[in-house]
Nucleic acid binder design. Structure first.
Lengths: 283, 283
DNA sequence: ACTATTTACGAAGTTTTATTACAATCATAT
DNA sequence: ATATGATTGTAATAAAACTTCGTAAATAGT
């Protein structure tokens, strides 16, 4: 139940002058328009009501109502950014299941809008060339580091995950220009990460960071900054949506890396698969 | 411009009888309702138009029109990502970013349809009462186990995560009727998990499993079976969407547990927060 | 058990909105 | 200039949304 805005933009060229006036108004302020009656919209665009009906028909909708519904659908998919739900404690099971899932989905969507394609490409390039990759995270972010390590190992990249300052410091001390360090901290404030990234940086390693969107001490150290959405509500409930969107970014990097060197990766993956097969019950 | 359906489900309990009749009709057939006038909807639900207006107001919307717009928004977000995309290796960065994100979102959505609300409630109840909680996973599922352990510890539950057979066996050997064991295996075929759950079961512990949907050796051992969607394509690309949907289930359990014992949990969370605060750079 | 009071709901009336039919205007070509 | 067709607006009409008010049922109080 969407496609309203897109269909308007596509038909724009073939619209009659007064219809186009309306179409442009709608494209510029869709949020306003869906709450407007046909009379008010006619008045604001200085055309007749009939023209708006005709526009709706030109766009292949039954009438103005249906056009509004379509536009509402577009808005929902697009700017779904601000529809995080505060998770209500006393709702039914069903409602909080819906809420949580909704928030997790939101965070993936939102991440798409703060994640720079250029930086992703750079990160894939750099990770692909690296001699050794160091992955750092503390607490919940440590799990992300481990997840990435599992994936990288599977395609035969040399990497180490470290989730405490001592290990991180030790690894950082031995990094060189050929190496990459990947620091994960949702808040971007974690002291241990700041310290261990700094050491790696001094040794000439390329620094990639994954933090929430915005300026923060961790991302300031980075050569390549990757961001996830920072709109999550309900801080109290712990790292929920944030780690989902971080994992989404890890997936993106992993697939990017795999495709960058497709043949090699597939061979490595196949080897890995065979090696762990004995874990499964043979049927 | 969405949230209509969710807000209906949340308020369902507090609605008046005839309002609820309408609400249920809407939840069951939202696609139909958005194309209905208030008169027709009133007729089909056998209530008066006034009742529908009142329902709209109860849900905090200006009127029936706005309610319809919200529902249209929900429908758009829901069906906008209705299928898994095979991730294409040679596309642009932009396209595979979209693909991966879409798949991850889809896996969350799909999980909602295979996850039984009853089983969730039971699981929350059992986890809430448990003396000790053992969390088992191998490989990628081990990370899920650790994630859950972090969350449970934060609200002061006694739990242990074990990601290899030796540790799992050791823990299982010492479990009793008061305890709960939580086995995670996406495939549901992992031998180590089958073995360690069996030991725990013999000792009388309650067994909860989290696997992909369908009958499988792991879930057959369970007292409470939790499922995630099993529709993921591209097996080769490794545990991507599957772990996202598993984490979504973990979130659901965690929030459920927190709310089950709200006051205690909040106190524990606050203590936890203070304790780890020193990790952050003080600004 | 009876009455007062609140709550839930619908019937009918009013206002607003969407749509249609037709008339006016504009542009273009002869 | 004027006929023709395309485009837009006006005004009437139909439909939809919303309000008001009264009544029945439920609840509470004596």
């Amino acid at each position: 139940m969407n496609g309203g805005l897109i269909s308007i933009q596509e038909s724009m060229a073939s619209l009659k002058p007064s219809e186009r006036k309306v179409a442009e108004y709608i494209v510029n302020r869709p949020e306003e328009v869906i709450n407007l009656s046909i009379q008010k919209l006619a008045h604001r665009t200085e055309v007749s009501e009939a023209t708006i009906i005709r526009l709706s028909r030109t766009l292949n909708y039954k009438g103005f109502q249906e056009l509004k519904l379509r536009i509402a659908g577009d808005l929902a998919t697009k700017q779904s950014s601000n529809s995080y739900q505060e998770i209500s404690i006393d709702g039914t099971v069903d409602s909080f299941i819906a809420n949580i899932s909704n928030n997790n989905i939101q965070s993936i969507n939102d991440t798409l809008s703060v994640l720079s394609r250029d930086e992703v490409e750079k990160a894939i390039e750099v990770l692909g060339k690296a001699r050794k990759i160091a992955l750092y995270g503390i607490g919940a972010s440590g799990l992300i580091a481990h997840d990435f390590k599992q994936k990288l190992s599977r395609i035969n990249r040399w990497c180490e995950a470290a989730v405490d300052y001592d290990s991180q410091g030790t690894i950082s001390a031995n990094l060189s220009e050929e190496d990459v360090v990947f620091g994960i901290s949702y808040s971007g404030q974690t002291n241990d990460i700041i310290q261990s990234l700094s050491i790696a940086k001094e040794n000439g390693a390329t620094v990639i960071t994954l933090t929430k969107y915005g300026t923060n001490p961790v991302s300031q150290l980075a050569d390549i900054k990757l961001f996830t959405s920072s709109l999550e509500k309900s801080i109290r409930s712990g790292a929920m949506s944030s780690r989902i969107s971080q994992l989404n970014v890890i997936d993106i990097l992993y697939v990017g890396l795999t495709s960058r060197n497709y043949n090699e990766s597939v061979v490595a993956l196949e080897r890995t698969r065979k090696a762990v097969e004995h874990l499964k019950k043979h049927v």
